[in-house]
Amino acid sequence: MTGTILVIGVLALIGVGLYGMMILHNVLKLVVALQILTKAAALALVAAGYMNGQLQLGQSLALTVIVADTMVAVVGLALAVQVRRHFGTLDTRALSTLKR
């Protein structure tokens, strides 16, 4: 039962994150949505470890995920700063062709 609820929770977080990725058009908020997704992934690894009785292993994996995705977020923020500097806005629609 616990496992089922955890899986539903992870799925809900993933859903929220993906929804954000689809509707948002602000570079910085896209990074926020990315962070929601990665937190869901880290939780999924811990939950997986909890469910199969290897919690410590799950924790070690989640630590690597947190570090790696923090680096992605940091690079994303730096990109956002540059986008703002050179486009004068964070709006992805001003980047003109993101959808093509």
Partner: peptide
Amino acid sequence: ALEAGVKYLVQSAVGSVLVLLGVALIFA
């Protein structure tokens, strides 16, 4: 180049989260 960078970062990051979910699923 900035536009290309933003696209690349956002799409690769989503891809890598999906891979990670697959890893978690297999591990579980």
